[in-house]
């Protein structure tokens, strides 16, 4: 089945909250309300024609208006795939450390377990009723979620220095410990390499190539 047929199939179930198929995207997706997410997933998995055996990716996107949580489903036996999106709008007056919450689909697809923990680790998306909800890679004591747009880069983790120009631990004077560096503005990276080595636009772009000699 192609995406249009899958979408028709979903609509025919009578579940509310299933949006239109966005087929202009390279990876066509359907926007689904969070309230019916588990039912939609269970239907796509159990129906003999859709037969989505695998949830191979759960990811999230931070936008100015909130978060998109993206689920990539595919079927080995039917050779088709579908992308579902849950859009969580940021309520008015919420600060930048607002944490969106969606229901966990780990009860339908066990593979979602670690993917959802990764999204919590890096983007701070909460998944309700998750069986083991904690960070997956970063230490438990880590502050913040690093892929947020307004993330403040830390200069140290405990006593471990993270800056390029930090004084090595074994060269420090116990009586004269180095002063902690100033907290940097949100979104500012730890180091700014010289612009001629960087292709990043915020670092000034690549320096112009030197003119070749001997050519007129």
């Amino acid at each position: 089945m192609n995406e249009q047929q899958l979408h028709d199939k979903l609509r025919a179930t009578g579940l509310g909250g299933i949006g239109e198929l966005e087929s202009s995207a390279r990876d066509p997706f359907v926007v689904v309300e969070a309230s019916v997410l588990l039912e939609v997933m269970a239907f796509l998995r159990d129906d003999s024609e859709t037969a989505m055996e695998m949830l191979h990716n759960v990811t999230a996107v931070q936008r100015e208006t909130g978060f998109d949580v993206v689920y990539h489903l595919c079927s080995y036996s039917r050779h088709h795939s579908l992308t579902l999106k849950v859009i969580v709008a940021q309520p008015e007056g919420e600060a930048g450390d607002w944490e969106p919450a969606v229901p966990s689909v780990a009860s339908v697809y066990p593979s979602a377990n670690w993917h959802e923990r990764e999204q919590w680790d890096l983007l701070g998306v909460r998944f309700n009723d998750h069986p083991d909800f904690r960070r997956i890679i970063l230490p438990e004591e880590w502050i913040g979620h690093p892929l947020r747009k307004d993330y403040v880069y830390p200069s140290t983790f405990g006593e471990i220095p993270l800056e390029l120009d930090a004084i090595p631990l074994y060269e420090r004077d116990e009586n004269d410990p180095p002063k902690p560096s100033e907290p940097r503005p949100a979104g500012t990276p730890l180091t700014q390499p010289p612009s001629e080595y960087s292709t990043r636009p915020d670092a000034g772009g690549r320096a112009p190539a030197p003119e070749k000699k001997g050519e007129s």
Binding site: L138, W142, P146, Y151, Y153, P154, F157, I160, P161, L162, E163, L164, A166, P189, L190, T191, Q192, P193, S198, R200
Partner: peptide, 8 residues
């Protein structure tokens, strides 16, 4: 530059 948890 962007390694938030990498020791340099």
């Amino acid at each position: 530059k962007w390694g938030y948890n990498t020791v340099k």
